[in-house]
Amino acid sequence: MSFAQLIQDAWNEQAKWLVVFRPLSWLYRGGFLLNKKLYQSGIKQSYKAPIPVMVIGNITVGGSGKTPLLIHLVSYLNSLKLRVGVISRGYGGQGPFPAYVDLDSTAEIVGDEPSLIVQSTGVPMAVGPNRQQSIELLLSKHELDLIICDDGLQHWALQRQLEWIVLDNNRGLGNEKLLPEGYLREPKKRLASGTVIEHSADPSSPLNMHLEAAQPYLLNKDLVTTFDANKDFYAVVGIGFPQRFYKTLENMGIHQFQCHEFPDHYEYELSDLQFEDANPIITTEKDAVKILAILKNNPDFKREIWVVPVDAVLSPACYETLHAQLKQLGLKLPEGI
């Protein structure tokens, strides 16, 4: 087990021994607050884009459901005839940056989540650590009404007009400690300064969402077979909170699977997909964009690889809040909204 996986498991279990990291958490907090203050005071310069920016992020490390939410919002905003562009850090991508993301872009170059976002929506997207450069690249190619920043909640170099913070109640805030003693990127009180979207199947807030799984599809396009939930599967997953995926499988009636977890944004190799028997693999769409490259380079690999797509389902209050926020920004919506 890697150290990253060890820490991830300890966070999820709220292990007592994490207290040894408390001095590092104090250092992290001091450095984070100092950096934020430098931007707020103007000592460090932040960039204001010529069009509104909406940040979708979280205050925790690991998965919260923000990518399915972003994909849903892009599709919904496009249905309102708003011209939307997306930027991202492009974590896991090798660049060079800034990089424009299109349907031919590979996860190796631009990152797994950007590849998934563009494949799902076709949205104009650019990635790179410098968000200003990414926005300028997008605006040099497209006329846009709104920029959505995937993650970047703690990226104070970019000014934003809207913040949606996804709070996954399935995972919660753990021990509510900052990195590395806990998995919080910011103190809990940060939730008071943005629009919090509760990710939960049993929400307590009117602003909520949940994920619904759709019918699994076969990643191996050359294989002809049908999905059978009663088979024995290898659940191969490299996301921030794999337990959510396992719960999804169980809710779909898939109960016979062996868990094979890898770190978030893991770069798969062929050996990671090879097992002693011929049982199928089942995985997430985020993992699939990287596994697909392995299949293309290894056409003789014939094991079934099933992908579980998920859709974000938002409460009515989310749309009402979004409409009000967009109108405050001066964006024109269709009549009746």
Rank of each mutant, 00 (worst) to 15 (best):
248 T>F: 10
246 Y>F: 15
240 G>M: 07
226 T>D: 10
216 P>E: 12
215 Q>R: 10
225 T>S: 10
219 L>R: 11
216 P>F: 13
262 F>D: 00
240 G>S: 05
197 I>H: 03
199 H>P: 00
266 Y>C: 03
201 A>S: 12
197 I>C: 05
238 G>E: 07
215 Q>W: 04
216 P>Q: 14
230 N>Q: 15
200 S>R: 13
233 F>K: 02
238 G>D: 06
221 K>S: 14
234 Y>T: 02
235 A>M: 09
222 D>T: 15
237 V>C: 15
190 R>G: 01
191 L>E: 04
253 G>P: 03
197 I>N: 02
202 D>P: 00
257 F>L: 06
217 Y>D: 01
238 G>V: 08
261 E>D: 09
242 P>I: 07
242 P>E: 06
266 Y>H: 12
194 G>P: 03
247 K>S: 07
254 I>H: 05
262 F>G: 00
253 G>L: 09
265 H>F: 13
244 R>C: 00
229 A>D: 02
206 P>N: 06
252 M>K: 12
188 K>I: 06
250 E>T: 07
238 G>I: 09
190 R>N: 05
257 F>W: 11
236 V>N: 01
228 D>V: 01
226 T>Q: 12
254 I>M: 11
238 G>Q: 11
222 D>R: 14
206 P>M: 09
187 P>E: 11
189 K>Q: 11
206 P>E: 06
185 R>G: 04
207 L>S: 08
198 E>Q: 14
201 A>G: 02
189 K>Y: 08
231 K>D: 01
242 P>V: 08
183 Y>F: 15
213 A>H: 02
206 P>F: 08
195 T>I: 15
220 N>L: 13
210 H>K: 15
220 N>M: 11
230 N>H: 15
247 K>M: 05
251 N>Y: 11
265 H>A: 09
248 T>G: 01
209 M>T: 02
226 T>A: 09
248 T>Q: 06
196 V>G: 04
222 D>C: 05
205 S>R: 13
258 Q>R: 14
254 I>G: 01
185 R>F: 10
184 L>T: 04
243 Q>M: 08
195 T>K: 10
197 I>S: 02
228 D>W: 03
251 N>M: 14
245 F>Y: 05
